[in-house]
Design a protein around this nucleic acid. Structure first.
Lengths: 195, 195, 195, 195
DNA sequence: TATGAATGAGATTTCATTCAT
DNA sequence: GATGAATGAAATCTCATTCAT
């Protein structure tokens, strides 16, 4: 079946995640990706048009994956608070492994086309929306204070999670899965519940 | 005197900020920096050992600058809230122009030595500390609730500011100086004041 | 029977004529030829040893074809003059479509083996000979002046036809079949008929 | 003075003439040209943007050179006949060394831009014009018959010279400078003088 | 000190050809 | 016999860095 081609693509993307993740776009070498995928260098070009193409496909793959993880993470909590904690934890375990890299590599570089930049922005907005929706549900259920600015609140949550991980992992040297964001979330919730 | 040498260094670093800012580390070309500084390409090497060296010196320059701006921004407020708003605004105007680039370029790349990475981490911790101190002062003065986890709170503040700018600038297309973080800060403060 | 094999060869050579014609030897890709022949890329290698081999076989095919066309073109005229005009026209219609390409590609390139170069030279000499024979017949029949240097005359005829087509097609933008070589031939004949 | 840069360009173009001449565009390697010019490979790129660029500049150089040679060759004869013989000889000595190669490489290839193709056509037309002018002068002076079609005559002359060299050099194995085109020219002139 | 010129090391990409089914 | 898949070898071009003036 056609699965073999798809299988190979996956295999190359896996390798790419490793190498791009470690080196960033420019320092990553196609040869190394091929090695990691245990195929010949030129075989990569049978599946992807160029280094840039491979990179962008990888980003798409990761984004898609992340998005689905987020959705299922949110299903794991009942209350608004639980959902967000679950989201935070998920962000820690799964994402830290590569999403950030992707964001970083992308931010200021023409390595990636405008097209994919927009696409990524779309994913980011989707996530933002999902979280904002969770908050709205929290308001409806009375868990959160009615008057809050949900947009601002969402920014606080997303930003805090990022920063929280950064502080605990980079400064304190914890592994993402060991980071504890509960105190931070509690503090945020105190505000969201209103005085 | 040595001032002329120092002057030239500054000149080159200025140019470097422009080019590295626009292109990122790898796509920036020494030749372009030299052009922008209006000197010959090889002259750059009279002042800096290598591209990496120039890059790191530039980072140091920016970090130092940023740090001082933060200090003076904090002096501009009386209450804890004012100080943090001032800090946020400062982050917006000044930093957005290049700090982020620097962080991005640095995050996942061996372009920069471990040494400078640690140095940067040091700067980051200093900023973190300053903000945490502001919060502690706020607690002492009774502006903020006594029992709060100041570390978590600092993460929330720093993270939220970043995210807030990202959302308003990238998604909404505002210019950094036009972003309004006050609603967000208010929300955070509600939590910090305790229930 | 072996006819099917022969059929396939022909089919591939047809495709090769198209692609080599459009792109020249080096820029032509086996893959494209295979596409044009509507077969798999590696199938080409079942019929030809290599790109070079395919190219040479194609040249042979064309040369053979051309030679036969020339022979029959010459039969279409009675007088020496008619024969040569017919030859010229034939050169225009048929050959211009690919012979020139072949000559070009061959001229300064080790893409083709010495062997085929000699072979091609052989064809060229055959054509030369045929034309010279036509002239000799013309002399015998009294149509042409007795004393002329038939070798020089043949060069003039062949060269003029080439140049004539070049000028009219490339500079004037005519299609080969619309080029009119009669005035030129008349002028040549005036010389060949002697003063 | 700036002559050093110009000098180097010349030096590289000389080498390019050798290598492109021997191998043709595609098989020629920049490295080999650099070797022949006794400089580093990348130095070539300090003077020319790309292989194609170098090739085209070389062509321009040759064309210019050729054109000037033709002009001075024509000055060496008094009668129309002498001028053309001189032209023919010049074509033999000088041109055969590379012009043809250039033409060949150019003919069917996107190796060269449309721009240069047009430029070359321009040179070709200039030469054509010059020869046609010579003929017209011949008519005016009574050396040639008044009624002849000078355009056709020019085609005959240019084509014959080419073919004449081809036959004598390739088939007979003569060196260009030993080829004798006089009989051929005489034959042509017989026609041009009219009966 | 300042710099134009030179270059070596390396990276991406192409494609003819082989292999395995 | 036919072919999709895989690849190795090669070639262009880039650029940080050094050299010589």
């Amino acid at each position: 079946m056609a699965g073999i081609r798809e299988e190979r693509r996956r295999q190359i993307i896996q390798a790419a995640m490793g190498v791009f993740g470690r080196k960033g776009f420019h320092r990553a070498k196609i040869g190394e990706i091929a090695n990691e995928a245990e195929i010949g260098k030129s075989t990569v070009y049978e599946y992807f048009d160029s280094k840039k193409d491979l990179f962008e496909e990888m980003i798409r793959f990761i984004a898609q994956d992340y998005y689905e993880d987020v959705r299922s993470a949110l299903d794991k909590g009942d209350t608004c608070r639980d959902k967000l904690l679950s989201f935070a934890r998920n962000h820690g375990t799964f994402i830290k492994s590569h999403m950030e890299l992707a964001e970083n590599t992308m931010s200021n570089s023409n390595s990636v086309s405008e097209e994919i930049k927009k696409e990524m922005l779309g994913w980011k907005m989707k996530i933002f929306q999902i979280i904002e929706d969770v908050l709205k549900t929290g308001i409806d259920s009375g868990e959160l204070c009615a008057g809050i600015d949900t947009r601002a609140a969402t920014s606080i949550i997303l930003g805090s999670i990022n920063e929280g991980y950064a502080v605990q992992c980079i400064i304190d040297g914890k592994r993402p899965e060991d980071a504890d964001l509960e105190p931070m979330m509690d503090l945020i919730f105190t505000g969201l519940k209103g005085q």
